Structure formats: C-alpha cells, structure tokens
Amino acid sequence: MNELQGAGVALVTPFNTDGTVDYESLGNLIDYQIKEGMDYLVVLGTTGETATLNAEERKQVWEFTSTHVAGRLPLVAGIGGNNTQEIVRQVDQFSISGYCAILSVSPYYNKPTQEGIYQHYKATSEAAKLPIILYNVPGRTGSNILPATAIRLAKACRNIVAIKEASASFAQFGEIMRDKSDDFLLISGDDPATLPMMALGAVGVISVVGNAYPKKVATLVKECANGNYIEARKLHSDLLKITDLCFIEGNPCGVKYILKNQGIIATDGVRLPLVPVSTQTQEAIEKEMEKI
C-alpha cells in the first residue's frame, strides 16, 4: 500500500451558513491540499463530522471528492461505527471509484472486549472490497485496540493493511512495530506524535492540522522519512501550538476557523453538538497564525 505512505489529511467538511455542505469550499480545500504537496486524502473521517451527515450526504461527499480529485491523489473513505451489521452493510455496498482503502474507527461507546473488537473488524474485512486501515483513538471511542489485537487482525485478515494509531502510548507503538509484519503499516493519528512515531518506524500521518498547513505537514513527513530529524524538529515545533489550539474546543472547530481566515473555506460553521470556537480561542489562533 504505497498510497498510504507519507502525509495524509483528514479533510474537514465545509458547510454553508444554512448548514448544507459547501461543495465550492470543499473543492478549494482539495485543490489546496494537492497544490501544497499532500500525498493522500481521507474523506469523511471523524474530522469530517461524519457522525452528523446522513447517508445521502456521505455518498455525495465521497462522489464529489472522487470526481474533483480525478485521480490526482489517492483517496481513503472513512466508514466506521459501533453497529457492526450497519458497517458491514456500508463497506459491502461501497463502490465509488477513485478510493484505495477504507479507514474504519474502532467501535465507540459500546466498550467491547478485545474479542469483540477482533470480531467486529473480522466481519468488516470479510465484507470489504477495499483494504482496511484500523483506527485506534481511545480518547474518542472509550476503548483501546491493544497491539496483540491489531497484530492478530493483520495476520488473520489479508485486507487489513495498516493501523492509524492515536492512543498516545509509545509503549503501544513500540509493541506494534516489534510484532508486526513488514507489510503492515503504522500511521500516526495524532499530529504532535508524528515525528517520534516516524522515528520508531511509522510511515507517516493522517493529519488534522494539515488541512490548514499541508505544506508544513508534508515537508515534516518527508524530512522524517529521509532521516533529516534536525529539519523535521523545526517544523514539528512550529506546529505544536497551533495544533493544540485546533483541538482546544473540539475538532474540527479550530482548524475550520483557521481555514476560514486563510480564505480556503467560506465559513467556519460546524454541526451541533459542535459549535464554533469562542472569541478567546479565535484571538489565540490569530496570534499563532501570525507567528507561523
């Protein structure tokens, strides 16, 4: 899966002032990512506010992105949830051209056991026509895909090819790198962890802050891949504060505010239960943008 090596971005879903999807802004955002050197795009991951889009909206966003990209970059579709039967149905029916893989978040809220997580992904993999990236983000899901479970899935299911790791556990990252096969990929799911994870052997990142600063993120990943960690540290440091501000009042509220200020998207609107960032956070973001 060479398409998954390097810098990927979890695209936001821009909205008009009436709450509908803003496809003009989405097209602008896609073109910005391509122009600034991103390696691949993740469409409707959690950053895309997928939980608040209905089935028809999701289909339209996937189709629009595929048509607009027109083969210029690899695409990954986000399909995950806590209803295994529904996720199996969705991955089985997914047939939109232009996509090379599916990113599937671990079941949230239910708090399944490791065996439950294993069986969920096994059923998903059996239905999927595309390779699957596991997505482990315990801070959002309430459960953790342990390294042994990830490795077990990779061995049992040939189309499970990677894991996007956002557990913040370097012990866990190290276990995965120690026990995985050469062709199973570890991908950073947390922007500030990208540099140290790549030093351990991760192949890149699926980034949030890359929406707003794709060139910096793409360059950081390239420098790490080439072993140029002195250059990478500077970029890593430049992005630390702005990344923190992107998440301080919920994702993607902060990064949408940056994108609106950059003129990439028309509004920073989000769908409830999220709300736009406060005036205090706006001021902090603007100050950090000036520094960058």
Rank of each mutant, 00 (worst) to 15 (best):
I87P: 13
V12Y: 00
I187D: 06
S143W: 00
P196N: 04
R233A: 10
G71A: 11
I206P: 07
N2H: 15
L239W: 05
P74R: 11
V61W: 11
I30D: 11
M289A: 06
A101R: 09
G189C: 08
E249Y: 02
L134S: 04
K129V: 10
Q93S: 14
Q280E: 15
I285W: 00
E115S: 09
Q60R: 15
V21C: 04
D39A: 11
G116D: 03
Q172F: 10
H120D: 02
D190V: 04
L195P: 02
G269I: 09
Y213G: 03
K215Q: 13
A128P: 08
D183C: 07
V88S: 11
I96R: 01
D238M: 08
N2C: 09
Y23K: 04
R140M: 14
E175V: 01
I145E: 01
D92Y: 08
D182C: 07
D182I: 07
G48C: 11
N16T: 14
M198T: 03
S66E: 14
I102K: 09
R89M: 04
E57F: 04
T281P: 00
A10K: 06
R158C: 00
I117S: 01
T84E: 14
A10H: 10
N16Q: 11
V205T: 13
K287H: 09
A266K: 13
T243V: 06
M198G: 07
G263E: 04
G37N: 10
E63N: 14
L134P: 13
I264R: 02
K129T: 15
T65I: 11
A128Y: 03
N28W: 07
Q93I: 00
I151C: 05
L26E: 10
G98I: 15
A123D: 13
V270Y: 02
P131N: 10
K111F: 00
L134N: 04
Q93A: 13
V137P: 13
Y135N: 04
V209Q: 00
Y32W: 14
T124Y: 10
R152Q: 12
N136G: 08
V9S: 02
F173Y: 12
P14A: 06
K241P: 06
P273Y: 08
I230P: 00
Y121W: 09
R158D: 11
N226W: 08
D31Q: 14
A199Y: 11
S104D: 03
I163R: 12
A7V: 07
A154V: 01
K287G: 03
R271T: 04
S104H: 01
Q90L: 15
A70Q: 15
N226Q: 15
Q60Y: 04
N2Q: 15
S66F: 13
V43K: 05
H68V: 13
A101Q: 12
K241Q: 14
T113E: 00
N261W: 01
Y229R: 05
F15V: 08
L53T: 06
K216H: 12
G250R: 04
K164N: 07
M177A: 02
Y99W: 09
L245G: 02
V12A: 08
N159K: 10
R58F: 12
V9R: 03
P112Q: 01
I133Y: 07
L41Q: 06
N136S: 12
E63L: 14
N228W: 03
D268R: 00
L235R: 06
F173E: 13
L130I: 10
Y257W: 03
L26D: 09
V91W: 08
Q60F: 02
L240M: 14
D183Q: 12
